[in-house]
Design a protein around this nucleic acid. Structure first.
Lengths: 143, 143
DNA sequence: TACAATTAGATTGTACACAATTAAATTGAA
DNA sequence: TTCAATTTAATTGTGTACAATCTAATTGTA
């Protein structure tokens, strides 16, 4: 029954469910993020800012695992929507300092409703969610 | 200690490790896929074809959870590399029939080495991999 | 102190992803 | 049979991702 090509079957891959679920979850966020005018990538960037108030582009990239090629347009979009300010560091002009605007800070009170809405529409059982979190966190250490 | 914004902390999200690991795994494939001239999306498309020999674009999209906007350029790229042929169905001209070329079939013998190379460089423990697979498969049913 | 090496961000190019729209083929109901 | 509704791909537009390169600022060292 088994042949040497079994390892290439889509159903035998771990990468595909991972890839599909990642896309699926990002898509599930879309309707809620649309309401507050953010994309998923912009949302996770704002999460870091709501925690830190001020970070450099470099720090944000390290936290989100994104390089400047991705981050530059994301941050410009957030700036054009008025949620953040982009400015150069006085101490080191190479560093781009990202700060929240008043509007960006205020957005947090809209965003805070999203996690519970997501939980409500996701069918994942809490034990599975905890296991998934544990395994993915462990996996992230290898990158 | 806990405040009402805790649910917005990046470290409290399940979506972020999922998103980060998905990207990480796709990136881990890159060096191996480069050797055989495929991108990750092209690779999973080829997997379906190695199993089926012939599918419509529609069927491929259903299997990979991709729409024509994504699939059309992917299939054109695979065609230009000589791995597949694209032709219209005689019975229903709306359907695009994808078939493997001889070169595409031959590529399978190169690709078959990839899963074990990936397993070797990934540090995931087999129990975790099985659990992860189970949970993600369950999650996929909700999309 | 010069100046090579490093660092941070921006830019360019390629490749998805997906929403919305379009176009052509087919189907189905009056 | 006719023509409106449906179906399938392709196209267009926006927004990531990431490699490679570029530019400017800073750092380390001879």
């Amino acid at each position: 029954m088994a042949d040497k090509y079994d390892c290439l079957k889509l159903d035998n891959q771990l990468c595909f469910p991972l890839y599909a679920c990642s896309k699926g979850v990002v898509n599930a966020y879309k309707p809620y993020l649309d309401e507050i005018g953010l994309t998923y990538t912009q949302y996770i960037a704002m999460m870091v800012l709501w925690e830190c108030e001020e970070v450099t582009s470099k720090q944000l990239g390290q936290r989100l695992l994104l390089d400047s090629g991705t981050l530059t347009p994301v941050l410009k979009a957030l700036e054009s929507k008025g949620f953040i300010d982009r400015s150069r560091s006085k101490e080191d002009e190479r560093n781009l300092i990202i700060t929240l605007t008043e509007k960006g800070r205020a957005l947090r009170d809209e965003a805070v409703k999203i996690p519970s809405k997501m939980a409500a529409c996701s069918n994942i059982d809490p034990q599975d969610a905890a296991e998934l979190y544990r395994i993915l966190r462990k996996m992230m250490k290898n990158f």
